[in-house]
Design a protein around this nucleic acid. Structure first.
Lengths: 213, 213
DNA sequence: ACAAAAGTGTTGCTACTACACCCATGA
DNA sequence: TCATGGGTGTAGTAGCAACACTTTTGT
């Protein structure tokens, strides 16, 4: 039976977001091989039989290509149109990945000749159908941040309320009202007061919080 | 290069919902081959090279196995853990499918010895990891019906407000207040009054509506 | 003393909930 | 005339948006 069933290449592609300097940024790599040599692309690569889950493949590829570890990954969907990869039929599974800008430490490695962070609203042209994959992940992020606690994945262990607000503003791409934001966050009772302050610049120090549990 | 890359079987599986007699139901097929012979499963099957998109594969498989045509399909996510299919590594792409109970007309065909509708809260044991796939689709449906117009896919061309309410109640699995439901629907301004009534039983006839545009 | 970000409350408005009776029809 | 589901409004509540000044620090 199996002999007559077509088999395909499977890949995972991770759209990695961070909020750095109040800006939502995406991690891209410059392709060093063909096709689309020299163009930017979402980090990812082919599923290997040794990857026991799709998640492990995404994690492995991300680490190999960018050096990133300990990152939040959420499986999104599949892209499998014929012709999306000129080398042959490749079905890719997209991932949403979030990392705190404090945890960023890129070590460009084997597969990518270059990796870098790009602001969401000044992206270069992307290889394959990666623009579509990236947009899908971005929409998913905006939706998730409204209804879940996913924002904490973009924050360091301890953070100020202003830093937290900046994360939401960067994702929503709009300013929020400080008092309303704080009121809502406090109502959710998700934060633990660390009884510490963060002094930064010539102004009143800000209280530090962490995510409860 | 390609020679060293593993290839895999790809499948699509569609979780087909309908609301019939005020109950949310799922379409399942009885497996006529091994593995899991005789058990129920979500309709689906292997991607073929002739399927130019994943959507077309899902649609083709659904038609071959159940006779269903003209159905709303929404791609969800991928399931690819090693060992989820005893025959070998199969990565499946799940779909959420919705159909009006008026459009149901099952013609069990080639792949399935039997197909039938099962109420969401009295499902049989399912083959493979189909329970997981089904639950994921169900959660997605509940989420989508809150925020989008997806409910219209579960309704016939023309419907009464009570029929519409029953669809929401079946998906949410809880009763809703008639007046509040109608108030909210009217505020959304999605409905077109067909200036027709539906007489059914010994009571006042109900106005018929259709989805605007 | 000044500049800069931290922190804090109130008011009006909108959206949601809870709730009960009359209407139009067929039998 | 009775049984059945169709159809309608109001009042109270909770959540959201708009908005400005005082506090604490470094220079």
């Amino acid at each position: 039976m199996k002999e007559i069933i077509d088999r395909f290449y499977i890949a995972t592609d991770a759209v990695v977001f961070t909020v750095d300097k109040d800006t939502l940024k995406v991690l891209l790599i410059k392709r060093k091989g063909s096709p689309f040599k020299g163009m930017f692309a979402i980090p990812g690569g082919f599923l290997q039989n040794k990857d026991t889950t799709l998640d492990k493949c995404a994690y492995r590829e991300l680490h190999e290509e960018t050096g990133v570890r300990d990152i939040f990954l959420k499986k999104l969907t599949a892209f499998g149109d014929k012709g999306r990869d000129p080398r042959g039929r490749v079905i890719t599974i997209s991932y949403l990945a979030l990392i705190s800008s404090e945890d960023i430490e890129l070590k460009p490695a084997t597969d990518a000749s270059d990796a870098g962070w790009f602001a969401i609203n000044s992206l270069p042209n992307l290889a394959f159908d990666h623009k579509k994959i990236l947009n899908h992940a971005f929409h998913n992020l905006k939706k998730e941040i409204e209804t879940t606690n996913i924002a904490f994945q973009l924050l360091p262990e301890r953070f100020t309320l202003t830093e937290m607000q900046k994360v939401y503003e960067a994702v929503y791409q709009q300013k929020l009202d400080k008092r309303n934001f704080r009121k809502k966050i406090k109502l959710l009772e998700l934060l633990k007061d660390m009884h510490q302050t963060k002094m930064e610049g010539a102004h009143r120090p800000a209280k530090l919080y962490s995510f409860k549990i």
